[in-house]
Simulated scan of single mutants.
Amino acid sequence: MATKLSTIVFSIVVLHLLLSAHVHPIRLESPAPQPQPQPQPPQSQPSHHNSSQYGTTEGSLQPQECGPRCGDRCSNTQYKKPCLFFCNKCCTKCLCVPPGTYGNKQVCPCYNNWKTQTGGPKCP
């Protein structure tokens, strides 16, 4: 009889624990914090430029704009990799890329005047 009673009490305790865990689940881990949106800094665009001259005057580009400008500049060469490498390097320093695929370097003196060790033009 004592064994039956202890089995019944044990069963009731286990049942109670199961039901309370189902109603109020136990969380072993804390919830992950939700990512908060970061405010974007305002992008200032030079207001003193003519849209046809934008990016072709020294300092008128943002560094992230160099890739597309250099892609256009190097589009007609058969030496794409070195052209893109040096164009991006020059653009990052000068923040401008001359218009067209060749020449026109006079609109960007920094780009035009940067030379290699042997005195040749560094920027394509």
Rank of each mutant, 00 (worst) to 15 (best):
H49I: 15
C96Y: 02
T92C: 00
G119N: 03
P25S: 05
Y102I: 14
P31M: 09
K80Y: 12
C66N: 04
R73L: 09
R73V: 05
C123W: 03
L28E: 01
G71V: 03
T92W: 03
Y54K: 07
G59I: 02
T7D: 05
P98C: 14
K93E: 13
Y111F: 15
C110S: 04
G55V: 07
L95R: 12
P41F: 11
R69D: 01
A32K: 07
C94M: 06
Q36A: 13
Y79N: 08
L17A: 13
N76T: 14
T3K: 10
Y102Q: 12
S20L: 12
Y111K: 06
G67L: 15
S6H: 06
P68N: 11
T57A: 05
C90V: 06
Q45G: 00
Q34D: 00
P99D: 08
L95C: 02
Q40S: 09
S60V: 04
T101F: 06
P41L: 15
C87A: 06
P42N: 12
T3S: 09
H24F: 15
P25E: 02
Y79S: 05
S52Y: 11
L17G: 12
T101E: 06
S75T: 06
S47I: 08
H22R: 06
K89E: 12
T118Y: 04
C70G: 03
K105L: 08
C123G: 02
H24C: 10
L17Q: 10
Q64K: 13
T101Y: 04
S6M: 12
K93S: 07
